[in-house]
Simulated scan of single mutants.
Amino acid sequence: MSAATNDRPATTRGLSAPLLVGGAFVLSTVVNIAAQVGSILFTDTDPYLPEGAISSIESISVVGVASLAIAIAIALPLMKSPSRARVGAIVLGALSLVTVPFFWSGAPAIFGATAAWLAGLTKGARPQAGAARAFGIIGFVIAILGVVAVFAGDLSAILG
């Protein structure tokens, strides 16, 4: 019995892996921090309240940067081998699901984008099959929804 090979052609359309993962980080974590800084600069609310802008900036920064570091630390060693990348896509896709309650930090978007990368859904990659592809697609959808949730939350805070 021979080992299964990935004979799918490389993806020619879409975003590159660094753009996808970096974009997820910027559009979720960095934008949310910028919104909190804007709240400090342009509103009269006390930023030092227990759940005010200062504590929000601290928690968003810590969780967002830690999520990016964990995602990259998992993805970089696994991306060289398709069989290991499959496992990484499943693990990171599961992490994107588990971290949904922390959407404000950008963690689900970061883990989801990295799962999509390892699943071969980025430009120049060979798409995985089976569970890895499913978790990559789920991760990609969670990344998009995470970015939308951050923008919606920031917009509602500004308008409300």
Rank of each mutant, 00 (worst) to 15 (best):
I144V: 14
G146M: 05
A119V: 04
I72G: 00
P127C: 02
M1C: 06
V148S: 03
V31Y: 07
A109H: 04
I54V: 14
S105L: 08
G14R: 15
R13F: 11
T5Q: 13
P18M: 09
D44P: 01
A24I: 07
I137G: 01
G52A: 01
R84Y: 06
V141H: 06
L155P: 04
P77G: 00
G22Y: 10
L41M: 14
G112I: 05
A149H: 06
L19D: 01
A129M: 13
G160A: 04
N32H: 15
R13G: 09
I54C: 03
V141R: 13
A143P: 05
P82A: 02
E51S: 07
G22L: 12
S56E: 07
F42G: 12
Y48A: 13
F140K: 09
P82H: 08
F42P: 08
S67V: 00
T12E: 10
V63E: 03
A107H: 05
M79C: 04
M79Q: 15
V148E: 05
A66K: 02
G93F: 09
I57A: 05
I90E: 03
Y48H: 10
A134M: 13
A3R: 10
G120K: 06
L92T: 07
G136E: 10
L159E: 01
V98E: 02
T114I: 05
G136Y: 13
L78T: 05
G146V: 01
I72D: 05
G136K: 12
G23A: 07
A115K: 06
L49F: 04
S96V: 04
V62Y: 14
G124Q: 12
A152Y: 08
T29A: 11
A17F: 07
G124T: 11
L20Q: 09
A157L: 08
Y48N: 12
F42C: 05
I137E: 07
V65W: 07
L49A: 13
I72E: 03
V150G: 00
L78N: 00
A17R: 12
V30M: 03
A53N: 13
T29K: 13
Q36N: 08
L15R: 14
S156V: 07
F25R: 07
I74D: 00
F111W: 06
V31K: 01
D46E: 10
S81C: 03
A129T: 15
V147R: 06
M79D: 06
P47Y: 02
P82Y: 07
V65R: 10
G153K: 09
P50M: 00
A125C: 09
A89Q: 08
